[in-house]
């Protein structure tokens, strides 16, 4: 999993120069980090369990929560999310949020795994059809590039609109 900085930076690159002003930038960015808002604390809990040698959450519960990071459950979550907004905004919210989620999944697909990773085809299959390109602990260079890109764009905006 690339960190949230990379995910948010990818979203910022999309909304930075969107011509049609159809997308809602804050919602695209929220969509970019949303899938990890469940998975992140879950991984943290699992790592702490391993480190401390205690069992706070059952493995069944971990797997149950993990599926919320899969594409089809994420479509449903985007659908649910858009109904938390005014009727006039719903379609724009859905498109913006789902675009962010898709960007997130695209970056996560770069992560290597031999077996299960994100249960990409759940609930239709448990197989992992995506091999990925890098191991998740090798992605520090992506974080650095993302941070540099965001700083450059924010600097450019600051000097342009000053």
């Amino acid at each position: 999993m690339p960190d949230l900085l990379v995910h948010a930076a990818a979203g910022y690159l999309v909304v930075f120069r969107e011509k049609y002003k159809y997308l809602i930038p804050s919602i695209v960015l929220l969509g970019c980090i949303f899938p990890d808002l469940i998975r992140g604390p879950l991984l943290l809990g699992a790592n702490l369990q391993d480190s401390l040698g205690v069992r706070l959450i059952s493995s069944e519960a971990i797997i149950t929560l993990q599926i919320f990071h899969s594409p089809i459950p994420l479509v449903l979550q985007s659908w649910l999310f858009c109904f938390l907004f005014e009727r006039e905004l719903r379609l724009r919210v859905f498109v913006s949020f789902f675009l962010g989620v898709m960007l997130h999944l695209l970056l996560d697909a770069g992560q290597r795994a031999y077996h299960i990773s994100y249960l990409w085809l759940f609930p239709f299959s448990l197989e992992n059809p995506i091999r990925g390109l890098w191991w998740s602990d090798e992605s520090t260079w992506i974080t650095i590039i993302a941070a540099l890109a965001v700083v450059t764009l924010l600097g450019w905006r600051y000097f342009k609109f000053r």
């Binding site: 493995s59 069944e60 519960a61 797997i63 149950t64 929560l65 993990q66 599926i67 919320f68 089809i72 459950p73 449903l76 979550q77 659908w79 649910l80 109904f83 077996h115 299960i116 249960l119 759940f122 609930p123 448990l126």
Partner: peptide, 22 residues
Amino acid sequence: AVFLLGSMGAYAYFKASEIRAL
């Protein structure tokens, strides 16, 4: 949407041993 997500969660819960064995 909540019902469908809940159903998927329940399905994953019952498939957990199979997923864990992969």
